[in-house]
């Protein structure tokens, strides 16, 4: 649910990073935070446990510049990946404009990926959204690890529609901004349709 403020000429969009536990959602946000010009970003807020597992969400506001005279603000959120935080995950999807699914490329995490993507579909439905209709991209993370599944295999298993797919190594940076840009494009393109 994009919030358009005609009075101050701003568009605010909410992007959610979703995925199984330890797939690198927070790492994506951390990399964006580290590499963004300080003027364009706000504080990175992490509601995490003492062992750095996301408890409720991470939040990073980004100001990207203007489109057609409107300031664009992206609010990036991650959800807690661990299964028992499902109630919190549902809450964060409220009002989402675009979703990035971060998949863990390690072979032994495929089941967790599949389970998380199904969980995403279910939780979107309870908020009144349809995965096939909302702006959505898939990120295959941790491509630098030795025991990864092939891109084709992962596509077969995880692709839900013709979503853009990005390979990434969130800890080092490759693919992180490409993924964000991919979803931002879809979100803004969605605006041109619905106004």
């Amino acid at each position: 649910m994009t919030f358009i403020n005609y009075a101050s000429r701003e568009i605010n969009c909410k992007i959610v990073y979703y995925g199984p536990g330890l797939c690198g959602k927070t790492t994506n946000l951390q990399y964006i935070f580290d590499k963004t010009n300080p003027a364009a970003k706000g504080k990175l807020i992490s509601l995490a446990t003492e062992t750095d597992r996301t408890l409720f969400f991470d939040f990073l506001p980004l100001e990207l510049g203007t489109v057609r005279g409107f300031k664009t603000r992206f609010h990036l959120y991650t959800v807690p990946g661990q299964v028992f935080y499902d109630a919190s995950r549902k809450l964060i999807l409220k009002g989402v404009d675009g979703v990035i699914f971060v998949a863990d490329s390690q072979v032994e995490r495929m089941d967790a990926n599949v389970e998380a993507i199904e969980n995403l579909e279910t939780n979107l439905k309870t908020q009144g959204y349809d995965l096939s209709a909302i702006p959505y991209v898939l990120q295959l993370n941790k491509r630098d690890l030795p025991n990864v599944a092939s891109v084709d295999e992962m596509k077969k298993l995880l692709a839900k529609k013709n979503e853009p797919i990005f390979e990434a190594v969130a800890a080092k940076g490759p693919g992180v901004f490409e993924t964000l840009k991919g979803v931002a494009k879809l979100v803004l393109a969605d605006l041109t349709k619905s106004g």
Binding site: I11, N37, A40, L64, G65, V67, R68, G69, F70, T72, F177, K181, A184, K185, L188, A189, L191, T192, S194, G195
Partner: peptide, 24 residues
């Protein structure tokens, strides 16, 4: 009125507009 007359200010956003947001 959307179908007929309502003119979205974003109707003309182009790929270049979006690319330029990420140009830094």
């Amino acid at each position: 009125q959307a179908g007929a007359a309502f003119e979205s200010p974003f109707a003309e956003i182009t790929d270049e507009d979006i690319d330029s947001l990420f140009s830094e």
